[in-house]
Nucleic acid binder design. Structure first.
Lengths: 153, 153
DNA sequence: TAAATAACCTACCCTGCTGGTAGGATTTAG
DNA sequence: CTAAATCCTACCAGCAGGGTAGGTTATTTA
């Protein structure tokens, strides 16, 4: 698999927050129940989103989380990057100190690193497809096929 | 990391085969020496490529491997797929029996699986970038910056 | 003030996969 | 016959992923 389930859980969490109004906080427990995910593990996941500045939080009773920005302005590349770390198709693409993504292969015997060309394209393809998808799109998609709340209730 | 080193090794192996003439077989040992990779492990890697019909082999002394098709006709999506298995961005995309790639999430409570939209796009981006790169391109790339053999020798 | 709620933090654990080794069996050229 | 090579299977150590446990702190409400 390409992404770990941290990304899956984190994205679902973000979608859930996007479905709520951003005025009042939503508790993790509510999200864990709605999505059937373990609460304690979600705490670790949401911590990454908070440190990346994608969600904000309030402690204490009636506390919780909400989106730091409108869902339209949140690209999924930011979300996945916060959850998974640097998006690199291959080990050699991650530079330890700088966290920048590049190929650290030595140019062995003057030859170009052939795989570098391939992984660079793959990385581009991934980031592009993530970047062109906003959280708002996913929220909208999750609403489709849902029973209209006013009429049914 | 997104792809394991099996993909890295396998791609380098394919490039190395592409650099050789397809008339005579190249031994794994030669490739292992040239790329500095463990021979025994390369055997397992090349077995996948052989089972996928991408390379052919001859046993015995002066045996070895060669490309089953010209490098121009080998898309890197085939190569990576043979090495890594089905290219799925997320666990739920792999269907055990059929090996087909799709989302197996239950349509919980009538809602669309929001993450499915995202992972489908990512998968498309990956496969597209792999598919539009041929082995021949990588071989060509690996030759650039190389000392011209005729003049230098 | 006390209690309940919920974020926040850290350490730990278990399982499975990855990368790699070992040791052989089989095939073929010289 | 011997050397070179593919082929096959079992095994192993390390490590990251997914998850649990058990707390501490902050905030609201009764």
């Amino acid at each position: 698999m390409i992404f770990s389930s941290k990304a899956e859980y984190g994205v679902r969490l973000m979608v859930e927050l996007g479905r709520q109004s951003a005025d009042q906080p939503t508790s993790l427990k509510a999200i864990a129940d709605a999505e059937g995910l373990p609460l304690a593990y979600l705490e670790q996941v949401v911590a990454r989103l908070r440190k990346a500045g994608l969600v904000m939080s309030a402690r204490g009773a009636h506390g919780g989380y909400w989106l730091a920005r409108p869902a339209e302005e949140i690209g999924m590349d930011e979300v996945v990057q916060a959850l998974e770390g640097a998006i690199a198709p291959m080990e050699c693409f991650v530079h330890e100190q700088t966290e920048r993504v590049l190929c650290s292969h030595l140019p062995d015997a003057g030859r170009g690193c052939a795989t570098k060309l391939l992984w660079t394209r793959v990385q581009g393809g991934i980031i592009r497809s993530l970047h062109t998808t906003t959280l708002a799109e996913l929220v909208e998609f999750s609403r489709r096929g849902e029973p209209v709340p006013t009429a049914a209730a």
